[in-house]
Computed example of a mutant assay.
Amino acid sequence: MNIELIDIPKIGNVLGNIGVIENGTMPFEMKRVYYLYDIPSSAKRGGHAHKSLVQVLIAISGSFDVLLNDDVSERKVTLNKPNVGLLINNNIWRELENFSSGAVCLVIASAVYDEEDYIRDYDDYLNHIKTIRTL
């Protein structure tokens, strides 16, 4: 599966650590940053794939699970450390669930928002994957 856990550079200090995200620390040029917060523990987020967008998800606070599917395999990754990011490349279905109280999910994206890049229906996703595999 085309995902990877990446270390977020940090500056250690006895008074607390500083996580550093700047140009050159991500495996792509950052174009958009947003975050999810105040998420009920029973909520499920995501439920889509991107045709070309690449993202890094970071649990800035608390924890949550990321369910990933590329039509060949499935994987669950628990994010719970603010110095570890999950790189999700394009054409991977993702769902986020099991949010702890106070969880904050930071998302760093390779492009600005474009609704045309989203695949929001799982059957459409499967058809898209089959199409790109035959090209």
Rank of each mutant, 00 (worst) to 15 (best):
N2D: 15
N2R: 14
I3K: 08
E4Y: 09
L5W: 05
I8A: 01
I8M: 06
P9Q: 10
K10N: 11
K10Y: 08
V14K: 14
N17M: 08
T25K: 08
T25N: 09
M26S: 05
M26H: 01
P27Q: 10
M30F: 04
R32W: 06
R32V: 03
V33H: 12
Y34H: 07
Y35I: 08
Y37A: 04
Y37S: 07
D38R: 14
P40F: 02
P40S: 09
S41P: 07
S42T: 10
A43G: 12
A43I: 06
K44Y: 04
K44V: 13
R45G: 02
R45A: 02
G46F: 06
H48A: 12
K51G: 01
L53R: 04
L53C: 11
L53I: 10
L53E: 09
V54L: 06
V54E: 13
L57D: 03
L57K: 01
I58F: 00
I58D: 00
A59T: 04
S61W: 01
G62T: 03
G62H: 02
F64N: 04
D65M: 04
N69A: 07
D70F: 00
S73H: 15
S73Y: 12
R75N: 14
R75P: 03
K76N: 15
V77Y: 03
T78H: 11
T78V: 14
K81S: 11
P82S: 10
P82W: 07
V84F: 01
V84G: 02
G85N: 09
G85T: 06
L87Y: 00
I88T: 01
N89R: 14
N91Y: 07
N91M: 12
N91H: 10
N91G: 04
N91S: 13
E95R: 03
E97V: 07
F99S: 00
S100F: 08
S101G: 13
S101Y: 11
S101I: 12
G102R: 10
A103H: 05
C105Y: 01
C105N: 07
L106Q: 04
S110A: 06
A111G: 03
Y113V: 07
Y113T: 05
D114W: 09
E116F: 08
E116R: 15
D117Q: 12
D117F: 03
Y118N: 09
R120L: 12
R120K: 15
Y122S: 04
D123C: 01
D124N: 13
Y125M: 06
N127S: 15
N127K: 15
I129F: 00
T131W: 09
R133L: 10
